[in-house]
């Protein structure tokens, strides 16, 4: 069965969706991704959807689910490279993906995640003192 590869980059996981997501594939991705977050102890999940041109309410829900599950496992989710048409569709569907961080491209998404990490370690250090 077709699977979407999940790459580990340091403390983060990178998922690049290159094919049209049908419902079962999306569900598999959700499961695999959470397993990987748990296994690797990743602090951030980067989902690149720049190649995704069609989105429906189910996809919006899956992305929201991934973000919610990751945040329980203490990992932040960043969705990068969303197409304007996809953004408009999600808004019209009433899915503003409020729990998810967004960035224009993978590079900026990485920078965003990296910027959030030291902050947290700093604050932990402060707590320790």
């Amino acid at each position: 069965m077709e699977r979407i590869p999940i790459l580990k980059m340091g403390k983060f996981l990178l998922v690049t969706i290159q094919v049209d997501l049908y419902d079962r594939l999306a569900l598999t991705l959700e499961e695999d991704l959470i397993q990987m977050v748990h296994k690797t102890g990743a602090r951030g999940v980067l989902i690149d959807i720049s190649a995704l041109s069609i989105v429906d309410s189910f996809m919006g829900k899956i992305i929201g689910n991934i973000a919610a599950m990751s945040s329980i496992l203490d990992a932040e989710t960043v969705v990068v490279g969303m197409q304007p048409a996809v953004a408009i569709t999600l808004i019209e569907l009433g899915l503003p993906l409020s729990g998810v961080h967004t960035a224009l491209n993978v590079e900026r998404g990485m920078a965003l995640l990296a910027a959030r990490m030291p902050e947290e370690t700093d604050s932990e250090d402060v707590d320790d003192d």
């Binding site: 969705v79 490279g81 969303m82 304007p84 953004a87 808004i91 019209e92 961080h101 998404g109």
Partner: peptide, 12 residues
């Protein structure tokens, strides 16, 4: 509000 939300989804 819709426009602002859509812009946020793009990461801006």
């Amino acid at each position: 509000i819709k426009t602002v939300n859509a812009i946020r989804l793009l990461g801006a």
